[in-house]
Design a protein around this nucleic acid. Sequence first.
RNA 1: GGUCUCGUAGUAUAACGGUUAGUACAUCGGGUUUUCAUCCCGACAACGCGGGUUCGACUCCCGCCGAGAUCACCA
Length: 479
Amino acid sequence: MKAITRFAPSPTGYIHIGNVRSAIYPYLVARQTGGKMILRIEDTDRERYVEGATELIEDTLRWLGLDWDEGPIVGGPSEPYFQSERREIYLKWVQKLLDSGRAYADPTPPEKIDEYRRKCNEEKVPFLYRNFRPENPPKWEPGIPIRFKAEPKEYSWHDAVMGDMHTGPEVLDDIILIKRDGYPTYNFAHIVDDAEMGVTHVMRGVEYLSSTPNYLALYEAFGLERPILISLPHILAPQGNKKLGKRDGAKSVTEYRDDGVLPEAMLNYLACLGWNDGTEQEIYTKDELIKSFSIDRIQNSGARYDETKLLWLNGQWIRRIFDEQGARALYDRTVNFWPEVAASYSEEYRVKVLSIIYDRLKTMSDLKTMTEYFFVDPDIDINMLVENKFLKKLSEAEIEELLKMSINELSEPKEWNPESLQEKLNDLLAKTGRKPAELFSLIRIAISFAPFSPALNLTMDVLGRETTLARLNAVARSI
RNA sequence: GGUCUCGUAGUAUAACGGUUAGUACAUCGGGUUUUCAUCCCGACAACGCGGGUUCGACUCCCGCCGAGAUCACCA
């Protein structure tokens, strides 16, 4: 079955990891079945509307590689894809309900409604608006809200994640269809749009599960076939038992991009948070996800967001791209992440640096702090040498002597490549009688003054003979 | 409070009546000529509680406890 799915965000801000999954899963289902993915902007709440949010949403989806077949930019047969531009359509649909007596104009002032609600709360009875229906609703005219006229009864339905559901008549109420300002509510608009756009799979957060009976009533009133309903459990914040939201500091998806997380890793992590295919596979490409995804294996309990695992996956992806696509391909992903001092160096040089450092990266932004000494001479910090756990046993004279021997050995006019350098280092080990821990630590710190760096021979190779010797000499002089 | 949902190690999960309850992240140890990381090896660590059903229950049923969602002219 070709699935027509949709992602229907409201443009009230950025997309964060707590809610992007409701874009990923519909996308996977659409692609797996050769169906269609629709992007629809639900901008009926003018108060919460945020300028530029739509672009942010589009940007996020594109970065993750989630393209849509219908929606803003690409258009489609059900244009427009902004609910604010579809008001005539909703009015047309609501008229059918008005005509059939399944909806009514409700002139009751908000204060009066609040009063009803308060009364119910005091009496500890559930507040149901249908018990307060106005007796003689006026003919509808703009400026008056329209409500659905609920018929209290039981509903049963199947939720692809939650299973068989059943509710009693007490959950059905006269929900608002059209607001005072003329815009439709989500409750109404999404039903109309899904029907007009031919949506077959409705995937959304579990928070909509409770209102599903009201949607069912609406489908029924319109004589519409129910789509497949799929509730997605929440992603929980790292602390506490709350769903991850902006208030818990949920970062936007694009913020991770700016911090050097790869879209492959992000997609991989998010898709596997609350879903698995039953195998022990951890790393999935987008195509593999499309292939193995299945709705019935979506977890039905909330999943806690764990950034550590995301970063681990990111490291896996960094290595995978390097191994499978080469240094150049990985380099192309790093352009914005180098320290400023790298700007004056050639791409070729940066690729070399990347080639020996990539397996230490958790995110691309690690490049900033991990590669500086490849581009600028580090500040000499004698304490770092003297206090090193292997070097503190040596006297300054011994250190100086070792340094001199190293300089001599490395000055010999022979080839300068990783293999010959390793030979030299081994010779030095033999000549000085020192342990690797001592000799290598000394040279490593003297040429980098960094807390860590790649293998010594590789580092020296990339740095070049001239720079390596210059740095060793500078250190020797300042002891 | 009503209605609904959920409950395997710290985290994400596997199991679908019979396993020493598997895997990954994290943590802790060890190995790979220095560091950090990669990689490899190892360790720690879980079926919320109580009743049933059954020869046998993480798996089925009931109760309890715990957690969450919802009860808007927000989505």
